[in-house]
Computed example of a mutant assay.
Amino acid sequence: MNLQLEIDRMFGGCAFARPLFYSYPGGLRFELSETGGVIQQFQTALLKSTKICSDIFLDDATLVACLRVHSGSNQFAHRSRIHALRSAGINIPTQRSVWSEKIDPEEWLCESEPEYWINVAFEAPATLLQAFLWCALASDFGVIQPNPECAVYLFNLKKHVMVFPYDDRGMDVVGPNKDFLSQLYRQHHIYLLGYDRHTMDSTFQGLAS
């Protein structure tokens, strides 16, 4: 399967738009970390995200992960992350989809050379769910290791839903499967981000009744 094409088809080309919750209306946004020191914030975020995602990938043997890296002219920047991923127990298989997207020049960090998003998508055992979440949430904590310093997107293509833990503060869950999202809305209502709760309530309260 060409994962790039399947992801683009299923999520209408919006899977990697930022912010995802606003770019793909009708989804869920969860609040993760709370007050406390760095370790406590990280542990709370990992606990919450694992609990929610365990229901998303319940009874599934595999998931699809996409690692997204900001790169300069070197379109093989993902290779520098491999050691940290292996330390987390994640090995990128030979069967994978790799593609690059040129970033709008107005968003370049350095004006001297083109910049890209490098995407590496592959199928992985669902038992690695917490390892992927660890890598995603560690990205903003220099003291938390291993840290591959890349964005992590998780897909359940069978259920037509995707997960983006954008940092330790929050996680977006979107997709065309509104019945399943409504189920998550009910199951994890206490974790919904308060700032966007009215938007989610207007979408799912009728479905949840």
Rank of each mutant, 00 (worst) to 15 (best):
Q4L: 10
L5W: 14
I7M: 07
I7D: 00
D8H: 06
R9S: 07
M10K: 09
M10D: 04
M10T: 05
M10E: 04
G12H: 12
C14V: 13
F16M: 05
R18S: 06
P19N: 09
F21M: 05
S23P: 04
Y24I: 09
P25D: 02
P25L: 08
G26V: 01
E31Q: 14
S33Q: 02
S33T: 04
T35R: 14
V38F: 03
I39W: 14
Q40W: 10
Q40M: 10
Q41R: 13
Q41T: 15
F42M: 04
T44Q: 11
A45Y: 00
L47C: 14
S49V: 10
T50R: 08
I52H: 03
L58T: 15
L58G: 15
D59M: 15
V64N: 05
C66G: 03
R68E: 06
S71D: 04
G72K: 08
G72V: 10
N74E: 12
R81L: 08
A84G: 09
L85A: 07
L85G: 04
R86N: 15
A88H: 01
I90C: 05
I92G: 13
I92P: 06
I92T: 13
I92H: 08
P93L: 14
S97L: 08
V98M: 12
V98A: 11
V98Q: 13
S100C: 11
E101C: 15
K102L: 09
K102C: 11
W108M: 15
E111V: 13
E113H: 10
E113S: 10
Y116S: 12
Y116I: 11
W117P: 13
W117M: 15
N119D: 05
N119F: 06
F122E: 02
F122N: 06
F122H: 03
E123M: 10
F132G: 02
L133G: 05
C135R: 05
A138D: 01
A138Y: 00
A138H: 00
S139L: 14
S139A: 13
D140G: 04
V143E: 04
V143A: 10
I144Y: 02
N147L: 01
N147E: 00
P148W: 00
E149I: 13
V152K: 04
Y153W: 07
N156S: 10
V161R: 01
V163K: 01
V163G: 01
F164Y: 13
P165Q: 04
P165R: 06
Y166D: 01
D167K: 07
D168E: 09
G170A: 13
M171P: 02
M171K: 04
M171S: 04
V174Q: 01
V174D: 00
V174I: 05
N177Y: 03
N177T: 11
F180H: 04
F180V: 01
L181F: 08
S182M: 12
S182Y: 12
L184W: 01
L184E: 00
Q187G: 09
Q187W: 07
H188R: 10
H188F: 07
Y191L: 12
Y191D: 09
L192T: 02
G194Q: 08
R197Y: 08
R197T: 11
T199R: 12
D201M: 07
